[in-house]
Nucleic acid binder design. Structure first.
Lengths: 198, 198
DNA sequence: GACTATTTGACAAAATTAGTCTAATAATCT
DNA sequence: AGATTATTAGACTAATTTTGTCAAATAGTC
């Protein structure tokens, strides 16, 4: 994503600064000069590492998503049983949503789709999440908690769950729901599992 | 300050919207379009009431200061004895500082001085505060808590106190101090009163 | 309807920002 | 030390955004 990933220290510095500036002002009102100034460098330095403002923004988003995918992986590994794993996944997904909100009004699906690379990133995120859900479901089937499903059905089910995650990103859902995240999580997890019970 | 103070409702609407936008983005990154959009009107409407962006900003500041002067007045009236009054004044002054910080990085003295009208407003604020302090000191002298001072000395003392208030606006003072506002207030009030004790 | 007040949209001038490019500077190697 | 490569910055232009203007449209009042 970056032109010359030679000096990792500067790269990280730029990413961190950019994340903060974009979070504070949003993409539109943030300038490359803002980012540069905040790390005490010239704007040209940024262009040495990233080919443009949008590219920097994409890098910030991708960096953020990568971190969250890792967090999801870790959360699932740390949980015992499919129920706990699904819950952990769901909670982590909510966290991802919060972070995207924090990146200055970029969570709107239409805005997100405007970047071709971001679209690819989104697909990757979707596939990764589907993978997580499939893994959990398979574990539940093998453990006897869930009814037996064909591989095809597992895939379909997993895509449905992840579609539900995506739906949470739409502005139809207000912050009030997120405030009651424990109750909300239980309910949604319950809905999800209803389709799997023996 | 406004060109045509005819429709007070729209005027207030603009002021309120402007306050929020300026607080969120600061003066520089806020646009008249932002303000207009947030009240669902055209930008030209803003120019009908205010001759320019800076003029609108000044109006917001002046409105804010007026409110705080009233609050200072009320706080002093409600307090008993010069010590309590001085403390109340000081706390209210800190509140004013917070509000100015909230208006998007305008608290810097040099920035403040850039506006001639704002300079006049600042002088007015200074004179008002000096008046409050003098009142409090006189009360303490008459009540026997403070040593007797000439009118000239009272004036000098009051200007010194208000200068101290102004010093708080400089970036040398970090937010950490403001976090411990009770201890901070006690200490500063103590320093102030030290010069007055019998 | 006539008159006045308010609001808006189109637009030009001014200001700001993104991005380019060359020179300066720093780092590395021989 | 000089040569080479990598990184950084400043000057600058083109593109974009913002401020402010002004005439027309619209709303309100008599």
């Amino acid at each position: 994503m970056s032109l010359v990933p030679k000096d990792d220290k500067v790269l990280q510095e730029i990413l961190q600064a950019a994340r903060e500036i974009f979070s504070k002002f949003g993409l539109k009102k943030s300038t490359m000069e803002d980012v540069a100034r905040s790390i005490g460098k010239g704007k040209s330095t940024l262009y040495y590492y990233y080919s443009g403002k949008n590219e920097l923004f994409e890098a910030v988003i991708k960096d953020e998503l990568d971190k969250h995918i890792k967090n999801m992986q870790r959360a699932i590994s740390n949980a015992s049983g499919p129920l706990a794993k699904l819950k952990a996944l769901f909670l982590e997904r909510l966290e991802l949503k919060k972070q995207l909100l924090n990146l200055g009004q970029v969570v709107q699906q239409d805005f997100f789709d405007n970047f071709e690379t971001l679209l690819n990133i989104k697909k990757e995120l979707e596939i990764t999440q589907v993978g997580f859900v499939k893994e959990i479901v398979r574990e539940g089937i093998e453990g006897g908690e869930f009814r037996n499903l064909s591989e095809e059905d597992i895939t379909l089910f997993s895509y449905w769950v992840v579609a539900g995650f995506g739906g949470l990103d739409h502005p139809v859902y207000t912050s009030d729901c997120l405030k009651h995240s424990d109750v909300f999580t239980e309910k949604v997890t319950g809905f999800i599992l209803y389709g799997l019970k023996k």
